[in-house]
């Protein structure tokens, strides 16, 4: 029913969605995540799929399960995710950029200038 992509299993996509939302501050540290029942009903998916996604986040120490109360975002989760994204950027996106620069014959200097301009505009 929702727009899932066909590259990854759905529980993985839910996990990534929640991670992104923690980074954006939708789910503040120390706050409760919506219940498995509510997510399943909202997304029209099996509750076991939601449970799998939450388990992945528990395994990464981003959230914790409080008995009888549900899932809570752990302190430092956002920081942890930021570090992870930084790592991902360095290992994956930088490589892509390097390849792209080479493909379009763009000097690194020009790229840095454009990048600075962009950062200036967004400020």
């Amino acid at each position: 029913m929702s727009d899932w992509n066909d590259k990854q299993p759905i529980f993985h996509q839910i996990k990534e969605l929640i991670e992104e939302q923690i980074l954006l501050g939708v789910w503040q540290e120390g706050c409760a995540l919506p219940s498995v029942r509510a997510v399943a009903a909202d997304m029209k998916i099996n509750h076991q799929t939601v449970m799998k996604a939450y388990q992945l986040l528990v395994d990464k120490n981003l959230i914790e399960k409080k008995r009888g109360q549900g899932m809570f975002v752990l302190p430092g989760a956002a920081e942890k995710l930021k570090m992870e994204q930084k790592q991902l950027f360095l290992t994956r996106d930088i490589v892509n950029i390097a390849q792209m620069l080479k493909r379009i014959d763009m000097p690194v200097q020009d790229f840095i200038e454009e990048l600075e301009k962009q950062i200036e505009e967004n400020r």
């Binding site: 498995v36 029942r37 399943a40 909202d42 029209k44 998916i45």
Partner: peptide
Amino acid sequence: RDTFYRHLIEWFHD
């Protein structure tokens, strides 16, 4: 459809 599946999923979960 939405209400149907919502009630169904909640009931099934419980």
